[in-house]
Design a protein around this nucleic acid. Structure first.
Lengths: 129, 129
DNA sequence: TCTTGACTTGGAGTCAGCTCCAGCGTTTAC
DNA sequence: GTAAACGCTGGAGCTGACTCCAAGTCAAGA
């Protein structure tokens, strides 16, 4: 188990940011020591790392919340009832919309990276001429 | 030549955003009609499209400003004086720092995309079982 | 027991990036 | 000649994502 400070140094998020993410519903520290002190498990830290990755790929906190909102559900089921079917369909449409946006973003990013390389090459050549 | 409204519909930026980008130093409409009305050339619109792409790849306006701050310089020069050398070196270090960040971001993005696909596949399977 | 240090909360402040608005100036159509 | 449509400016307001702060709780050490 880790304190918020340890989690902070492990993940690179500030103390305030971790508490903020909790308030926003991205992280749920289950245990509290006396005095209400938060304790995080290794799983929590792992989860934070995922959030870090999602953030770095440019998703908003709202998007991240949607993205990670399905850890538990529907495992080992034989049949699905109407409720579950609707839930899955809604999750799928959210996810595929996100996927579309991410792929567009990837195209833009690739273009930007190759442009940056071109510029750098140009300067490189200029220096050694 | 295009009015700001035409440029807006062509690029998808709002009127206010285009004016804001001008104030921030990202766009420089050279001509003004009487009454101070902005006129944009095809080149301007093209430039806006570049900005759009840079934005979509996740750069901040400040980053974009740095990224595009070299359209003109140092073409067809045989020798470079000290001033120019320093300028080029500073541009190179900015660009390569940006490139590093962009490549990190690309890795994160790839990971996120493949995770999204995995999730979608999982739901897909669930539906057809 | 008292102090020190790490943690808590709620709320205010900050910054980027817009977005909206009031009040004004042109141009165009009737 | 006047009303509608479009544009201008300066400044206020808004959202997202933090960041900072004051006042309080708790545990451990001198």
């Amino acid at each position: 188990m880790y304190t918020i400070r340890e989690a902070s140094t492990m993940t690179g998020f500030s103390l305030d940011t971790l508490r903020y993410y909790e308030k926003m519903g991205l992280i749920h520290p289950t245990l509290r020591k006396s005095g209400g002190v938060r304790m995080y498990s290794a799983d929590h830290v792992h989860h934070m790392m995922s959030i870090k990755c999602l953030k770095q790929s440019g998703l908003s906190l709202e998007d991240i919340k949607e993205f990670i909102a399905d850890g538990q559900c529907f495992r080992n089921k034989e049949a699905l009832d109407d409720e579950e079917l609707k839930l899955i369909q809604s999750r799928m449409s959210i996810l595929s919309a996100q996927l579309d946006r991410l792929e567009e973003q990837r195209q833009a990013l690739d273009k930007t990276i190759s442009e940056a390389r071109t510029k750098l090459d140009y300067y490189e050549q200029l220096m050694h001429s």
